[in-house]
Design a protein around this nucleic acid. Structure first.
Length: 834
DNA sequence: GGAAAAGTTAGT
DNA sequence: CTAACTTTTCCG
């Protein structure tokens, strides 16, 4: 007997899949020896936790543990051969968790594709005892169930329940009597896609022989064999059938004779498989592009963690700068992430990246199915790609040699996740790049004021002030809708815009119309008394869904039929108000008979691929007008668009949000940028009731700096970001009084803790440190799911780690949270004040 | 998040 | 005194 090497025991610290305060800490587990070589920090495991098995992530490995061995249990399962996360990402999850005050498990889960999220199953199996009780008198139901279990072996309880809807009560009894036993397991939602594949024989000779031996009548079978002779590669059965237009039986009979093989083979879904991308070469840079590209390339080559704010007007050619920066990054054998707002992750954008970098690019966006997204993600973890282009969560792409992160349309609020973890992709990107010594490029025509102020301190500011090939920015006209009304024009088109549309139609040029909706979508209102149908559980109006003719609450799912008479005044003049875009479309057709309009809004783009379809139609000039909401404002580039119209510019100006002016300016500037991007000059009409507002005026002059100056002045006076940091606390409870009361206590606590903690630490007085707690005040949506919502706003100015203090203050209410069903949510640097 | 344990209450 | 119910604890 050989001497065994000295037993090295190994322990893993695991974060389990329960997002609660109580479980927001590592638990130690024994690593079974056979796992020791494979397990690593970032591994996904199944661990026993109390009475069941949970999914968890390994965040630490050690040969020692504080936990006494009586408690220690072994990890039951290692879920992946290659850990889905690495040390860097686990550390980043820690940063996300403490920065945004969320349970660590949520930060970890945000980094993996949905397909790897845990799914728990009970496995039901007939036990030995079952045969002993064969004398039992079973009901018919029970007989069937027994027979099924006997023939199938262990069965997942969910499948069982589907087959025998009544089985749950029977199973409960059987479990108690020991007739069946159950085991728990963790699975993921992975569905490896398989397809029947035809495998030709290894030896070409075999095929030749087969052809000779075929009877003369089997002409179709001969076709198959000859095809395989010239293409001796495995081929999907479905593809082969359509290629040679034959039926499965033909191939099957060949397989039966043993001439070829049909097997289930795993296939990788490639959402872009049926598309070819024209390869492109780097374009020569304009002097201006060259001048911003040089420092970026320098940083990438030197591997220096620089953050660049690239301020370039619409049409100045930022994308080409991105592409060449990535090229430089790839040449250094390092990887690049490109973040794009979901809404502008258009086929056009994807095409440019696929065209330049081909199969070295993975694309991640929400339109992909769970499986497709998983497959794209796997290309990253298997190191098959070096570039990722995707929305917010792509910032967590599991690269190990990151050299560059690009954030396009840096100012977009969609980079902030509204659910926990409420992270901002821009901030995560900068943190991640710091660890990798990678460069960051924040690109925008209208940088967020936060970034602009940072650019004066830490970031490096790069500017591109003119469009490529010296094309002019479009001429922008402001139309005063008040004057239009005075002059008796009650239509939604002002006379100047009407004339401009007429002119383009005549010249066969194209038009983009933006309807900047306020609030959500369609609602039902009574025209006699103004009554709006609201959700009985939430203080919000119900949304009309045309296809099912019902009204639905977007917050709690409550639904009801559309009323035919007003519930309030019994009038029959109750009807739904179209998405806005619908009404604009109707009016357009009335004013310009025969006009071809493409309407893009939530209703028309919900279907997969519809987005692309509409844009292609427009691109091919099969429509005169592209009419839509925000989504027509971003990133589109059509050469024949020479007119952009904004129906009402000020709908978002009056929202209760300190960023409303900034958002208005950004949107107007972006949409104006859609016009005249190529040889034909563009023109823009902005209709507004507040023509003197600086966000409208500055947008019309394409004057970002003047806007920034004016808006920063307001922010400074009112003490809003970027002059302070905000943390929004939302307290909700079934009883209004409890919510307010807790809000008051919480506000007082935070202020008191701050005042107390400040005494010792106030010597470094460079800038005045300041913390104010405002509220509680009713939230903009004062009630959701029968819970009243109040919010407190913490404004902080200074350099200190304020999150810890807030975390401690909120923790004081833990008891009430559990006992009284109170909820407190924390949003660090909120983008929406709701 | 959920089961087990501990604590509380009501019913005889 | 205990069954029924609620609250608290703890999971490695």
């Amino acid at each position: 007997m050989t001497l065994l090497p000295k037993e090295h025991s190994l322990f893993a610290q695991v974060i389990v899949d329960i997002p609660a305060k109580e479980t927001n800490r590592p638990f130690d587990y024994r690593v079974p020896p056979e796992m020791a070589g494979l397990i690593d920090i970032g591994s996904r495991v199944g661990v026993p936790f109390g009475p069941r098995v949970l999914q968890g992530f390994v965040i630490g490995l050690s040969d020692r543990t504080e936990t006494d061995s009586a408690k220690l249990r072994p990890i039951s399962e290692l879920l992946d051969l290659v850990p889905p996360l690495n040390r860097e990402l686990v550390a980043l999850a820690g940063w996300v968790s403490s920065t945004y005050l969320c349970p660590l498990i949520l930060a970890l889960q945000a980094m993996i594709p949905g397909a790897l999220k845990a799914k728990y199953e009970r496995l039901i199996e007939l036990s030995e005892a079952a045969s002993l009780s064969a004398l039992h008198l079973w009901t018919e139901q029970e007989q069937l169930l027994l027979e099924f279990l006997r023939s199938r072996g262990p069965v997942e309880s969910s499948a069982l329940l589907q087959k025998f809807p009544e089985s749950s009560s029977i199973l409960k009894v059987w479990l108690n009597e020991g007739i069946v036993s159950e085991s728990l397991l963790v699975k993921d939602r992975l569905q490896i896609k398989k397809a029947l594949t035809v495998i030709p024989p290894e030896e070409p000779e075999a095929l030749r022989q087969a052809i000779e031996q075929l009877p003369r009548t089997a002409a179709r079978q001969k076709d198959v064999l000859e095809y395989l002779q010239s293409n001796p590669m495995p081929i999907r059965l479905a593809d082969l059938l359509s290629e040679l237009s034959l039926s499965a039986g033909t191939v099957k009979s060949l397989a039966d004779k043993g001439w070829l093989d049909i097997r289930e083979v795993e296939v990788q879904r490639d959402p872009y498989a049926d598309r070819s991308f024209t390869p492109t070469q780097p374009l020569p840079l304009t002097p201006e592009q060259e001048q911003v590209f040089a420092p970026i390339r320098e940083a990438v080559v030197q591997q220096s963690h620089d953050v660049f704010l690239l301020h370039g007007v619409t049409g100045s050619g930022k994308t080409e700068v991105y592409l060449q920066s990535i090229q430089a990054c790839l040449e250094k054998q390092r990887e690049a992430i490109v973040l794009v707002p979901e809404i502008s992750l258009t086929p056009q954008m994807v095409e440019r990246f696929k065209g330049r970098f081909g199969s070295r690019v993975a694309v991640l966006h929400s339109r992909l199915s769970q499986g497709e997204r998983y497959d794209e993600w796997r290309k990253i973890i298997n190191q098959q790609v070096q570039v990722v282009i995707g929305a917010r969560s792509a910032v967590f792409a599991p690269f190990t040699r990151l050299g560059l992160i690009i954030i396009d349309e840096e100012h977009e609020s969609s980079y902030k996740q509204e659910e926990s973890p409420k992270y901002h992709a821009r901030d995560v990107a900068i943190e991640r790049a710091r660890k990798h010594q990678a460069a960051v490029v924040l690109g925008s025509a209208t940088p967020s004021l936060e970034s602009m102020v940072e650019a004066r301190q830490g970031y490096r500011l790069l500017s591109m002030a003119s469009r490529v090939e010296g094309r002019p920015l479009p001429k922008v006209h402001i139309v005063d809708l008040r004057q239009e009304l005075k002059d008796g024009n009650r239509s939604m088109f002002s006379r100047p815009l009407y004339k401009a549309i007429e002119e383009r139609l005549h010249k066969k040029e194209q038009i983009v119309l933006l309807l900047n909706r306020r609030g959500h979508s369609t609602f039902v209102m009574c025209r006699s008394c103004g009554f709006v149908v609201q959700c009985p559980h939430c203080d919000i109006s119900l949304t009309y869904h045309q296809n099912v003719n019902t009204m639905r609450c977007h917050y709690c799912g409550y639904a009801e039929r559309v009323p035919t008479v007003c519930p309030s005044c019994a009038s029959e003049h109750i009807r739904y108000f179209g998405t806005g875009t619908q009404r604009v479309e109707e009016e357009l057709s009335k004013l310009f008979p025969g006009i071809r309009v493409i309407r893009m809004d939530v209703d028309t783009t919900s279907e997969k691929g519809s987005h692309e379809k509409w844009l292609n139609l427009f691109k091919n000039r099969q429509a005169d007008v592209l009419l839509g909401t925000q989504m027509v404002a971003k990133g589109l580039d059509f050469p024949h668009v020479t007119l952009v119209g904004v129906i009402t510019a000020d709908t978002m100006l009056n929202l209760p949000d300190f960023r409303s002016a900034e958002r208005t300016f950004q949107l107007l500037t972006q949409v104006a940028g859609r016009a005249g991007r190529h040889h034909l000059p563009g023109e823009v009409f902005i209709q507004t009731y507040t023509p003197e507002h600086y966000s409208v005026v500055c947008a019309s002059h394409h004057d970002y700096h003047e806007f920034a100056r004016a808006e920063l002045k307001v922010r400074r006076t009112l003490s809003y970001p970027p002059f302070c940091k905000l943390i929004l606390l939302t307290i909700s409870h079934e009883q209004l009084a409890v919510a307010i009361r807790t809000g008051e206590l919480l506000a007082k606590d935070i202020q008191a803790m701050w005042n107390h903690g400040r005494d010792g630490n106030n010597s470094s007085g460079e800038i005045e440190e300041r913390l104010d707690v405002h509220g509680p005040v009713a939230s903009p949506i004062p009630r959701i799911k029968d819970r009243y919502r109040f919010q407190c706003m913490v404004k902080y100015r200074g350099e200190r780690d304020i999150q810890t203090l807030i975390g401690q203050a909120v923790a004081k209410f833990d008891e009430k949270v559990r006992k009284e069903q109170l909820q407190i949510s924390v949003d660090v640097n909120p983008q929406l004040m709701m």
